[in-house]
């Protein structure tokens, strides 16, 4: 299993998939761990992958790239990926990259499990 360090701080099963909680800044030094952890999670074939970013105060383009890769893999597998609890700085980089128009973004975990 890939070493994902402490970047993935929790997982919770839901009826049609899994919620993954991510923690800390997602930058060039940590995005490979995020990528490995999330790609490992979709190996189990969840219909819905919810990524809770409540504890992520900062993300750079390498973090976005990791999420795009997971998004494409999850789409290819016929599953759904939903992001939730984005802090303002993180939402800002999604808007700059226009990825807020591509990803499903929910306000919280509860909403993410129903969209």
């Amino acid at each position: 299993m890939a070493d994902t360090g402490d970047i993935i701080c929790g997982t919770e099963s839901i009826s049609d998939g899994v919620v993954i909680r991510v923690s800390g800044d997602i930058d060039f030094s940590r995005s490979p761990q995020l990528r490995e952890g999330l790609l490992g999670a979709i190996n189990d074939g969840p219909a819905r992958l919810v990524i809770d970013l409540n504890d992520v105060p900062y993300m750079d383009s390498s973090g976005l790239a990791s999420l795009v890769e997971v998004f494409k893999a999850q789409n290819a597998a016929g599953g759904k990926l939903v992001l939730c609890n984005l802090q303002s700085k993180v939402r800002g980089i999604f808007e700059i990259a226009k990825l807020d128009q591509i990803f499903k973004i929910a306000d919280d975990v509860e909403q993410a499990t129903t969209v």
């Binding site: 750079d60 990791s66 795009v68 494409k72 700059i96 990259a97 591509i102």
Partner: peptide
Amino acid sequence: DLDEIRPGGLGTHIMRKA
């Protein structure tokens, strides 16, 4: 080009927008 949805290549675009 941001219309292409793929990982990578966003850094320079982000710098110019920021």
